[in-house]
Amino acid sequence: MAQKTMIQAITDAMHHELKSDEDVLIFGEDVGQNGGVFRATEGLQDEFGEERVFDTPLAESGIGGLALGLALQGFRPVPEIQFIGFIYEAMDALNGQIARMRYRSGDSKSAPITVRTPFGGGVHTPELHADSLEGLIAQQPGFRVVVPSTPYDAKGLLISSIRNNDPVFFMEHMKLYRSFRGEVPDEEYTVELDKADVKRDGKDVTLIGYGAMVHTALKAAEELEQENIDAEVIDLRTISPIDTETIIESVKKTNRVVMIQEAQRQAGVAANVISEIQERAILHLEAPILRVTAPDTVYPFSQAEEVWLPNHKDVINKVYEVINF
């Protein structure tokens, strides 16, 4: 099986979908001839032509509106928002318009749109490129929010997202784009949406994360193994809605949980996950559920980001706290 980076897996997914469904359109800033600033759309315009893969004027709200208008003509748009911080410009198009189309039209219209955007810290970007803004979309009913952590998942989840008849906000962690390779089949396959994945089996504590934090959790789990602590790692993969079933199953086994998110602590996905656990499985818990998050500040300029971002040592410390409670 081929070893690919996450960005290659993402390109692969779009290639399959452009080929298998002629209603799929890919557009955004610099996605055409340039192949996108991260080269996610590399070669796609050459192969499928400007009718299917095209540049837009530089305006994110316009890109959102364009996507919805094209969806209303039966297309399956896959717009790219060049960096996550630019979605502020598109918030009405996303949350005010795209997410509401099915309900607003009384189920007579839909918005099968997959909005792709890079996010996440640790790559020394300028301001408003690296934030974890998943909460802004996850709080909007009507949108699914999908965050892959491996090349294999990225391809399968992106194909599932594009084929879904409802809008998906697909977040690609920049640090994962090229930092490692993983097995990615050449043929098309799907990974089910709304399903978390157990990335590592364990019995002593459950570590829950998504995006780059899955790898932080896995690294922590490896070190904890040396100390005879056997951690289970759950990758949420879809953060709205949350797959509570997979989480609760794990909690019933380990009785201890540490939840990790790269986003700031306040009003985050972690708070939501913890709340679901305590409502459903409080009697299975041996300790309070602890969180590893970034502090409640804005994302820092790049000099401070290494300390600001949660790391595996932060996770290990919290694991000791729940084990020794």
Partner: peptide, 25 residues
């Protein structure tokens, strides 16, 4: 068509999309 838009101007960007869709079709 769409039901009446409440957010002022949101229909303008959508119109560009619908129009491009009509052209592509």
């Amino acid at each position: 068509g769409l039901s009446p838009q409440i957010i002022i101007g949101a229909q303008y960007t959508q119109t560009a999309g619908v129009a491009l869709g009509l052209k592509k079709r």
